[in-house]
Amino acid sequence: MSEAGRTAPRRTPAGARRVAKHRLTSRRSSVRGVQLVGLTAALAAAAGTSAVALSPSAGPANAGTTSTSSAQLEAMTAARVERRELASRDMSRFDMSLQSTRKAQVDAAAVAKARAAKLAANATLTQRRALALATAKAVAARKAAAAAVAEAKAKAEAIAEAKAAPKVVLPTTGYHLTAGFGQAGGRWASNHTGLDFAAPIGTPIRSVMAGEVIQADYEGAYGRQVKVRHADGTVTSYSHMSAFTVSVGDSVQAGDQVGAIGVTGNTTGPHVHFEVLLGGEQQINPKPWLSEHGVNP
């Protein structure tokens, strides 16, 4: 075919090109609109919101709608970020609250443990005090019982000793009689008023019966003299002593020492001049009186 016969290229009128370009732009806008709708739906689904339906076939008239959808997307994204921040703050607060609760529980457990330990210590201390008190009471009871036994034993021994002790004894030992009651002679101004028990100087002189010492003094011709009053009012007298071993007011038992044999006063040798005075005044023969009380000089 000759070049002349070839068909000349078609020239698209300017109006047709503008229509085609507008269609291409609309098609691209539609694609973008579809993509934006898909992205918005995905974000809305993630954020828990409903996507706004955008029509891809709206054409150029939907350009304002696309801008509106972008603003909504930004708002939803901001809302999503805010919710995340709120959730993060809530989680932080929850963690802090949980930590505070756990700390309070730990503190309460520590306080309870301390109280339990204190109660246990108090119970132990109370138990120890009770044990110590019981022990002290037991010791005191044993001591009281021992003291009672000792006292009873002492009383029994005293009673036994009193029963065993002689009620009447002779005024001295290792003696020999050198003068009797009523005896006369140049050695005395009048008849002899007692019994003379001669023994070495220093030989103990004893009270013949229990009684109270009513005199312990130097008495003229009697020398050092002791007198003892007995329960029945009888008084016994011991003279010519070398020393006293009692004082006025002393209580004596039968056999207790009241002095020692000597040569004080009017005497020819060491002896004790022994007298018995009924009622404290009437001189009687000591020999029968001693015999009546169970001893014989």
Rank of each mutant, 00 (worst) to 15 (best):
Gln35Asn: 08
Glu3Trp: 14
Gly194Met: 02
Val226Glu: 02
Val235Ala: 06
Gly294Met: 06
Thr173Val: 07
Pro288Trp: 09
Ser237Gly: 14
Val258Asn: 01
Ala41Asn: 06
Val263Cys: 11
Ser2His: 09
Pro204Ser: 08
Lys103Ser: 09
Ala71Gly: 12
Thr268Glu: 06
Thr25Cys: 08
Ala112Ile: 03
Pro200Cys: 10
Leu290Asn: 02
Gly59Pro: 01
Val52Met: 06
Arg206Trp: 04
Pro56Met: 03
Thr264Leu: 00
Val208Tyr: 00
Ala109Tyr: 01
His273Tyr: 05
Met76Val: 15
Glu74His: 15
Ser50Asn: 07
Asp107Met: 09
Gly48Met: 06
Ser242Lys: 07
Gln72Ser: 12
Trp188Thr: 07
Val276Phe: 00
His293Gly: 03
Arg187Thr: 13
Ala260Asn: 02
His230Asn: 13
Lys287Phe: 10
Val19Lys: 11
Ala164Asp: 10
Val31Met: 13
Arg6His: 12
Tyr218Ala: 15
Asn62Glu: 11
Val248Ser: 12
Ala51His: 04
Ala79Pro: 04
Val169Ser: 04
Ala254Leu: 09
Ile201Gln: 15
Thr126Val: 11
Leu39Thr: 05
His22Ser: 15
Phe181Cys: 02
Ala79Phe: 14
Arg89Glu: 08
Ser67Phe: 07
Pro9Asn: 15
Ser29Ala: 13
Thr173Arg: 08
Ser237Asn: 14
Ser30Ala: 14
Arg80Val: 05
Arg32Ala: 13
Arg83Val: 04
Ser291Asn: 08
Leu39Cys: 03
Tyr238His: 02
Asp232Gly: 09
Ala78Glu: 15
Glu85Arg: 11
Asn266Lys: 04
Thr135Cys: 12
Thr173Met: 11
Arg28Gln: 14
Ala114Met: 03
Ala109Met: 13
Ile261Pro: 00
Arg89His: 05
Gly15Ala: 13
Met241Val: 04
Pro200His: 12
Ala147Ile: 01
Val169Pro: 01
Lys287Pro: 01
Val168Ala: 07
Ser242Phe: 05
Ser237Cys: 14
Ser97Gly: 09
Trp188Cys: 01
Asp196Gly: 09
Leu119Ala: 13
Phe244Cys: 03
Ala44Lys: 00
Val81Trp: 12
Gly182Tyr: 03
Arg80Ile: 03
Ala152His: 07
Pro297Ile: 00
Arg224Thr: 03
His271Asp: 01
Ala160Ser: 14
Leu125Pro: 03
Asn285Glu: 11
Ala254Gln: 03
Arg206Glu: 07
Leu278Gly: 11
Ala58Val: 10
Ser239Tyr: 01
Val37Met: 08
Gln35Pro: 01
Thr77Ile: 14
Thr7His: 05
Ile205Trp: 00
